[in-house]
Design a protein around this nucleic acid. Structure first.
Lengths: 269, 269
DNA sequence: CCATATAATTCCGTTATATGAAATTTATTG
DNA sequence: CAATAAATTTCATATAACGGAATTATATGG
């Protein structure tokens, strides 16, 4: 779709290859296919992959390439902008211990929410967010919705415009239903939308505000529907909100601007 | 130390910059310092960083650069070689539910063990391995030691030779003590070395063998010293070993060669 | 608050090096 | 064991990466 004949630097072309390697499924990708997808010659792709491999970013088994462990290790240090993950760790541990459910820490990243950390509860949970490093469109899932609901109006509208088709693709709310849900979320300050999209599962999300009052993150709980019945729900809400307030109070005053909201999706579509 | 006047490709030079950005502490690194460290001109570093930023790998706040969230997201898919993380998830969840302690999944990566996944128990744990994506020299920590103990002799010796200084640096065992511990680990098939390096903490590690009988991973438990007293220990050992066997049986027959054991440390020293 | 130093960015001519066509080797498949 | 397809190497060419020098922005201190 979006071609735009601006010539990219060789570095960016190479990083594009790396992205595609990452996008390939666990089995890896063959040189031929990679070169074809990326629209470069095989020798070019080959040389880049050799370099990536020499740096430990990519590994090759047989004739398939995939992202290597060193890459994983390096990236574990990423996204530490304000040290949110470290700050939040004790909060998550407390929540996990108190509620004995699965706890998520989500942060906003452009049009998406990213799972920065997650502490597993005793019940096997299915969630949209997936595991640590997983990404969902803002608006899908309780925590993600909590963030979206509390963004400044202009930004929120921009995200909605961008995400509605993505949500529809995933069989989720249409725009009208989304707006109702957002309205409700804003009114009560937390999200308990039970869409029944994942049978037997339920969740609860609350926004985390930074010092400027921006919804930069969310805490959420994912559990069995049974465990969020009316008699338990209010207590869980109260605990979550209290911890969200604690976490928000610890956030550093500076920075936290929105950064590359644009390219977020452009590269892999 | 390691100069070796082989000229690297521009891509590898750029990736070296990225590594250094990752190695900088959470506050990020300035262009000037980065260029100086890497031994390139400021304009060169600048252009590379602009490209990384445009691809969402690096973010810039003020005049400091650090790894961005997109990088984290991309890397979450790395190290899935044989899908170990997914295969192990139910194993970890079972162990966590049964033992109510913190459970680690470690894999070997060159001279190191990397924490591929971790499920938190109710007690706050200090461990060498650190969080997901954390890296320790093989031989430091119970799981890490379990892997080392069960490597083929030649490989084991190579790792020992390389790691002894690293272990000493961290105030750990000298070579003699390490060899005793390895001998014991091999004899009993699990590791319960309580070095007292982390006061009040204790751990237990067992190796996970792939279809070729190679020790490619380890499961381990980190908990309070109190919780591994003689009366509970044997049960925990039995459970861990059983799950390690289960996990090993699920591992794919193919691949799993050792890959870049050399460069693992060379780049950031 | 302005002067000065230091870092970040932009410009530009030069040269290194990334590139794809073609050739060669290696693996896969009938 | 052919025959085919993919991976890798070679090489001449054109591109774009490079650092010095100039410019702008940002700290620093008087």
């Amino acid at each position: 779709m979006s071609d735009s004949a601006e010539p990219l630097s060789s570095l960016r072309r190479a990083l594009g290859l790396l992205r595609r390697v990452g996008a390939a499924d666990a089995g890896g990708i063959r040189l031929k296919d990679l070169a074809e997808q990326a629209g470069c010659s095989q020798p070019t792709a080959h040389r880049a992959l050799q370099d990536f491999a020499a740096e430990g970013f990519v590994e090759q088994t047989g004739k398939r390439y995939r992202l290597a462990l060193d890459f994983f290790v390096l990236a574990a240090r990423a996204g530490h902008a304000d040290g949110l993950r470290d700050l939040a760790k004790p909060v998550l541990l407390r929540l996990s211990a108190t509620l004995t459910d699965t706890i998520f820490l989500l942060v906003r990243n452009g049009y998406d929410a990213v799972c920065l950390d997650r502490i597993e509860g005793p019940f096997p949970i299915r969630s949209f967010t997936g595991d640590i490093g997983g990404k969902v469109p803002l608006g899908l899932g309780q925590g993600s919705l909590a963030i979206l609901a509390h963004l400044p109006e202009a930004e929120r509208e921009a995200v909605i415009r961008f995400n509605v088709p993505r949500l529809l693709d995933r069989g989720f709310l249409d725009e009208a239903a989304l707006r109702v849900a957002l309205q409700a979320a804003r009114a009560q300050g937390w999200v308990n939308l039970n869409t029944g999209l994942i049978p037997g599962m339920a969740g609860l999300g609350v926004p985390v505000f930074d010092a400027q009052g921006r919804a930069v993150a969310a805490l959420s709980v994912g559990t069995l529907a049974d465990r969020l019945r009316p008699e338990r729900l209010p207590g869980v809400v109260a605990i979550l909100r209290a911890e969200a307030a604690t976490l928000g109070a610890m956030l550093n005053p500076f920075d936290t601007a929105l950064r590359h909201p644009s390219r977020s999706l452009s590269s892999l579509s």
